[in-house]
Design a protein around this nucleic acid. Structure first.
Lengths: 155, 155
DNA sequence: GAGACCTTAACGACGCGTGAGAGTTA
DNA sequence: GTAACTCTCACGCGTCGTTAAGGTCT
């Protein structure tokens, strides 16, 4: 009995809402046991699964992918086949993550450059627009990070 | 005339769909000119904005945030005020990205460990389940990555 | 009896995909 | 004039958040 959590306790522990936990059950991602009164009982394994699912969702990994990882193994008869299929899945995920990571890194450096440029507007009394401040350091040139174009639109 | 793109051309160039470009206009993120026949004409600045928006969306940064960055400046009268507010926005974004990056890195190392474990199932003829293969290297111990619990559920 | 839990059911937001039907452009 | 493009609705989906009603468990 002590080995099981009810939904509220798991929600607090895992960071997922009760609604979300029920929804994941609908999708077959977590399959808790039940009492006679239909109260969900989450085992230690279920708890781990909930945490992992939350971690993955925080990286915006689609539920479809999570579901695939959770269910793929059952579709095979031997460890051989299953491990091959699983490895392929994880490989795909891993290379996705690599792409994301490199995008994040390059965006980070753009952000830092942009914040440095912005610091030189610290005492500027001009109107913050291309027409109000035509010599603004934000005015686009070759070295300006792309993201500046989002800030420095007309008017 | 040559300086403007119509929606189809921009879609091909930016990676955003036509629908998405129209939606971003609804939100005020991109505001193209129009011909007399209401065909949208995107300037070079608009094109940059579209690309940036796409980059940010590929990192699952919410449109709300993109919209905020695109519109915040206009709400202030001087460069001073605007740059302060903008810096705050970018700061928040940057620290979000830091968190994401570190989550990605730790997940990546879990994935690599897991794929290594899976390689030892390469010639296994057992049924891939805790009961079918009780000595499986995936069986959870202290060093097993959390994500394995997603793979290695019952039955 | 109080508080946590159950189910069903429904509505809403976000970020678009998809299609219909009509109009524009080269 | 015709082919290719574009326009404006408008509905639908996934992933929940939220509220509600009415019941059950401990």
């Amino acid at each position: 009995m002590d080995d099981y959590l009810k939904i509220g306790a798991l929600a607090r522990l895992s960071g997922l809402s009760e609604r979300t936990l029920r929804y994941y059950e609908e999708l077959g991602i977590i399959t808790p046991a039940r009492t006679d009164g239909r109260t969900r009982l989450y085992s230690k394994k279920d708890i781990e699964v909930a945490k992992v699912a939350n971690n993955l969702r925080e990286l915006d990994i689609p539920l479809e992918t999570i579901q695939a990882i959770a269910s793929k193994r059952r579709k095979f008869k031997t460890g051989e086949q299953s491990s091959l299929a699983m490895a392929e899945l994880l490989e795909t995920l891993s290379s996705d993550l690599n792409e994301r990571a490199s995008k994040i890194i390059s965006l980070q450096s753009d952000l830092i450059t942009t914040m440095r440029l912005l610091r030189s507007c610290r005492n500027c009394k001009n109107k913050p627009s291309p027409t109000g401040c035509p010599t603004c350091p934000l005015e686009i040139n070759e070295d300006t990070p792309q993201i500046v174009s989002l800030i420095w639109q007309n008017p």
